[in-house]
Simulated scan of single mutants.
Amino acid sequence: MNVYSRITGTGSYLPEKVLSNQDLEKMVETSDQWIQERTGIRKRHIAEAEQTTCDLAEQAARRALEAAGKTPEDLDLIIVATTTPDKIFPSTACLLQQRLGNHGCPAFDIQAVCTGFVYAMDVANKFIRTGAARTALVVGAETLSRIVDWTDRGTCILFGDGSGAVVLEASEEPGILSTHLHADGAYEELLHVPGGVSRGFEVAVETGADPRFMQMKGNEVFKMAVNTLGRIVDETLAANQMKKSDIDWLVPHQANIRIIKATARKLSMDMDNVVVTVHEHGNTSAASVPLALDTAVRDGRIKRGETLLLEAFGGGFTWGSILLKY
């Protein structure tokens, strides 16, 4: 008997504080029209000073557990995808486990930046397919506002905070059909935070930029993302001997509306079948795919039995996709 992993519950959370494009106009030289035309973003949510990534993760996790009809004690595995952990250690997954009141199941973080949730889903899927777990909680959560330079108009317009989560359970019915993960560290400096534990957070960087904050070469990242996501669409369809028309919904990483539209064109897919939430929260890195998924599940767009393609591209570079029956 084949064992599959199926999504049985979704949840998400956005901090209450909103930073609109109009607010940004007062902070840097930009405009609402310019931001919307180039990114599709209207606003982003910002965690309060006392709110941590774990706080956001807990909210999304509890909503996903409730939707799945599960308690924290039912969990055999907890994975948190984040690039903005609460502490250097222990992992945010361990902190979340403590909050939820689960004791004993494996809990760990995955760091693949914007592709983190896709990576985490792949790992959880393999735990379930091999019998190592029956019920897994997978969370993508970020407080990117902590690593954004709010004087850099090239990056500060793009990013926000948020979280999304799913509960995966073992099932005899097909759920996740295939996963495809990739990385290429050769492009490290196109999108990165220069500082770190080993290199030091206060070291002077050759460019003179603050090592605590994200740096991005936007045009190069955009081109790589469009080309790479186009290839992974082909790879995913070929691996499953599927046609473009077999996909009911595209649930993409919410980074930029132009990248999303380019991927939709690759699938010959009408934008009505693409879940777009980037206008509501900007790029929330590992949180963006589960945020979009939960939004479309809860508003009734995505229905049981439909075929979904999830995909993401992030710093590293990392990229990946998941094909699943919801």
Rank of each mutant, 00 (worst) to 15 (best):
N2W: 09
I7L: 10
G9Y: 12
T10E: 06
S12I: 01
L14N: 05
V18C: 01
V18E: 01
L19K: 14
E29W: 02
S31G: 11
Q33K: 15
Q33Y: 04
I35F: 08
E37F: 01
T39C: 06
I41G: 04
I41M: 05
R42Q: 15
K43I: 04
E48H: 13
E50V: 08
Q51R: 09
C54N: 13
R62K: 15
A64M: 09
L65I: 06
E66D: 14
K70T: 01
K70G: 05
T71I: 00
E73V: 06
D76M: 08
I79P: 10
A81K: 08
A81F: 08
T82S: 15
T82R: 10
T84V: 08
K87I: 02
P90H: 08
P90R: 05
S91T: 15
A93R: 07
C94I: 11
Q97V: 08
L100V: 10
G101N: 13
A107L: 09
I110L: 15
Q111I: 15
V113A: 15
G116W: 00
G116D: 02
D122G: 07
A124T: 09
N125C: 09
N125Y: 08
N125T: 13
F127T: 05
R129N: 13
G131M: 08
G131C: 11
R134N: 15
R134D: 15
T135V: 14
A136Y: 07
L137R: 09
A141W: 05
T143I: 14
T143L: 02
T143W: 05
L144E: 02
R146P: 02
I147S: 00
R153A: 07
C156P: 14
I157N: 14
L158S: 01
L158M: 09
F159V: 04
S163L: 07
V166M: 13
E169L: 04
A170W: 12
E172C: 05
G175Q: 11
S178W: 00
L181Y: 01
L181D: 04
H182W: 05
H182T: 06
A183L: 13
D184G: 09
G185C: 12
L190S: 07
G200E: 14
A204G: 01
A209S: 14
R212Y: 11
M214P: 03
M216I: 04
G218P: 03
G218M: 02
N219W: 01
E220V: 10
K223N: 12
V226G: 10
V226A: 08
N227L: 12
T228M: 02
T228P: 03
L229H: 03
G230V: 06
R231K: 14
I232Y: 03
E235F: 08
A238V: 12
Q241P: 00
M242R: 02
M242H: 00
K244V: 09
K244C: 14
I247A: 02
L250P: 07
V251K: 00
N256K: 01
N256F: 03
A264T: 09
K266R: 15
L267K: 08
N273D: 14
V274H: 07
V276I: 15
T277A: 01
T277R: 08
V278C: 12
E280R: 15
T284W: 00
A286F: 06
A286W: 02
S288N: 04
A292C: 05
T295V: 11
A296K: 07
R301K: 15
E306R: 11
T307W: 00
L309N: 02
A312N: 04
F313D: 01
F313N: 03
G315H: 04
G316R: 05
L323C: 15
